[in-house]
């Protein structure tokens, strides 16, 4: 087990190095650079070039990359062009916010999606099942910014129950995490339902029922655990998606997370921040995936890592 984890982490390292190469070259190949963008109406050619030199952007791409990697190995992600602050500081200020949002969204998604899926599967083609699956379909196909704006309109503007922007208190977390959670709940509900339906037709379920076990025990102890593998995969993927995909929700709720930091940085071509943020996202995504793989073993003892 330990060796397996080490092996996976070792592989992740290569993935991350690959990502630095990709991001580093991609953002520099896209037209537009920070010196041109931040220089004002009076700027001369000399001044634009001076700013480029200040930020080390006048050097050949390979030299810039080597400098970046050298700093990275010393734990230094560089300094933001827009704010003069260390990139690590910018990320430290933002990442917990995104994590909080994604985690809260995930909890909502799992609770609502999971429950809806289980109930639908036990009463297939019932009114509840049909309604739940229609809502799941709506959830899967609704754009996040639209749902977010509608929630703000209802709960902030009309009812005045919840704040619509900011991130100071737990109350601020409700609407954005609900937006994220409701959208992800759709997929989870559908996956749980189909996986449960399949499991409920297995022989051992019939056996369990024949033994005279209570239906609730049959469903939650015998069926659910076995139906969980595909569900956990989807949840893991969704969590990764939530981490990276909070950009729209963060924009609508002006939530100070990584997504907005990244978008702001892309618009101003703040290269060091983009590099750092993508790297952190990639690392988080890889770790979540690793976590999901390890979880399989706990859910289904037949799965072993050697």
């Amino acid at each position: 087990m330990g060796r397996y984890i080490l092996y996976r982490l070792f592989l992740t390292l290569f993935v991350l190095i690959g990502i630095t190469v990709l991001v580093f070259s991609m953002i520099r190949l896209v037209p537009g650079d920070p010196a041109e963008l931040l220089a004002d109406q009076w700027a001369t050619k000399e001044q634009i070039e001076f700013l480029r030199r200040t930020w080390g952007l006048d050097k050949p791409l390979l030299v810039q990359y080597i400098v970046f990697m050298k700093n990275l190995l010393q734990g230094n992600l560089g300094e933001s062009i827009a704010s003069n602050m260390p990139v690590a500081y910018e990320i430290r200020m933002r990442f917990p916010n995104t994590l909080k949002l994604a985690a809260a969204g995930m909890v909502i998604a799992v609770v609502i999606g999971g429950l809806a899926g289980i109930i639908s599967a036990t009463k297939p083609y019932s009114l509840f099942d049909n309604l739940a699956m229609v809502f799941a379909l709506i959830g899967v196909s609704t754009p996040a910014f639209w749902l977010g704006l509608m929630l703000i309109l209802l709960f902030s503007v009309k009812l005045n129950w919840l704040p619509c922007t900011g991130a100071d208190t737990l109350r601020h977390l409700i609407l954005p995490s609900l937006t994220l959670g409701l959208l992800a709940a759709g997929i989870i509900a559908r996956q749980t339902r189909s996986s449960m339906l399949e499991t409920l037709q297995q022989d051992y379920i019939t056996t369990a029922r024949a033994k005279g076990l209570r239906e609730i025990t049959v469903i939650y102890l015998h069926a659910l655990r076995n139906a969980l593998i595909p569900v956990v995969t989807i949840v893991g993927l969704q969590f990764g998606r939530l981490l990276g995909g909070t950009v729209l929700v963060e924009t609508v709720f002006s939530w100070p997370g990584m997504g907005r930091l990244m978008v702001d940085s892309i618009f101003t071509r703040d290269y060091p921040v983009i590099q750092g943020a993508v790297l952190v996202f990639a690392a988080a995504f890889s770790l979540v995936n690793l976590g999901v793989d390890l979880l399989y073993g706990f859910i289904d003892p037949r799965i072993r890592y050697a």
């Binding site: 910014f145 704006l149 902030s156 704040p163 619509c164 922007t165 924009t251 609508v252 709720f253 002006s254």
Partner: peptide
């Protein structure tokens, strides 16, 4: 406060948050 999305900015104004 920075509120980049114009619809959110106006709703915050209407809700009395800004």
């Amino acid at each position: 406060k920075p509120i980049p999305e114009v619809a959110s900015r106006l709703m915050a104004l209407e809700a009395g948050e800004v």
